[in-house]
Design a protein around this nucleic acid. Structure first.
Lengths: 121, 121
DNA sequence: TAAACATATGAACAATCATTCATATGAATG
DNA sequence: CATTCATATGAATGATTGTTCATATGTTTA
C-alpha cells in the first residue's frame, strides 16, 4: 500500500505526497467516525441548543421551564431536546406530567468550555 | 435558597422558577458570545472540514495536496479553507505559487479529541 | 372517563449551506 | 510579457435545517 506516485498530477511540492498519503491513511479516522464527529459538532452548532445546554449546566429542568426561561415555544424546545437526546448530550426523566432533562455526561461541559476558550482570545 | 415562585405561569414545578431565572441570568453568556460559540461549532460540523483538520494535524499542506489527499476539487477545498480561516482554526502562508495551510492553535485538537471521546462510548 | 395539562411529533416553509462551474487573481517561468 | 500554475471567489443549485402550526400521546385530576 501507499506506493510512490512519481507522476504527481498536482502542484510542485512533490516530496510530501508519499509521506502525506501514508500519514493521513494511518491517522485519519474511519468514514463513519468522521461522519459521527461532524454530526456531534453540528448539534453544538445552534445557539438555541447551546442555550439549552447552558441552562442544564445549572439544573435539571422540565420542558416548559426551558421554554419559559429561553422565551421560546414548547414545540421548538422539544424538537431541539430530541436532537440533543439522540446525540446523547442530555437525558430525560418523567415525573408525573412533566419530563425533566439533564446533562448526559461531562464531555458536554468540556467541549463547550474549549469552544469558549477559543473564541475568547 | 430555592425560593418559591407563587406566580408561576407555567407548569406545576413552581418551586424552581425564580431560582432558575436568577441562575440562568447569571451564568448564561451574552447573546453574541452564544452566537460566536454556535458559529465555531458549526465549523466543526462538516466532515469535509473535519477531514481537512485531521490532515493539518499531521503536516502543513498546500491546497492542491489537500484536494488530492481528500479526493475533492480544489474549489471545494478552497471554499472550506476560507471558512476555517475566518474562524481562526487554520492559518496560511504563501510560498511561491502555493499557499500552505496549518493549524492556528491547539484548541482545535482539544475540541476534536473531546468530540471523539464522546462518540466512543 | 372526560377534561386539562405537559410533552412529542409530522408536515410545511424559509433560511442556511456545501458543492460545482466559470472565472478572477497573483506568482513564476520561458 | 504572455502563458502556465496555484489558489480564490461569485453565482447557482440541491440538500439540510430550525421554527411554526396543527395534532397526537401520555399523565393527572375532577
Amino acid at each position: 500500500m501507499n506506493k510512490i506516485d512519481l507522476n504527481a498530477e498536482c502542484c510542485d511540492c512533490n516530496e510530501v505526497h508519499e509521506d502525506l498519503l501514508k500519514i493521513v491513511n494511518e491517522t485519519m479516522p474511519e468514514e463513519n467516525e468522521l461522519y459521527d464527529l461532524a454530526e456531534l459538532f453540528k448539534v453544538f452548532g445552534d445557539s438555541t441548543r447551546i442555550r439549552i445546554l447552558f441552562v442544564l449546566f445549572e439544573a435539571e429542568v422540565c420542558v416548559c421551564d426551558l421554554a419559559e426561561v429561553l422565551n421560546m415555544t414548547q414545540s421548538a424546545i422539544s424538537h431541539q431536546l430530541q436532537i440533543l437526546k439522540q446525540n446523547k448530550l442530555v437525558k430525560s426523566r418523567r415525573e408525573g406530567k412533566s419530563i425533566f432533562y439533564s446533562l448526559a455526561d461531562d464531555h458536554v461541559r468540556t467541549i463547550i468550555a474549549q469552544g469558549q476558550e477559543h473564541i475568547e482570545e
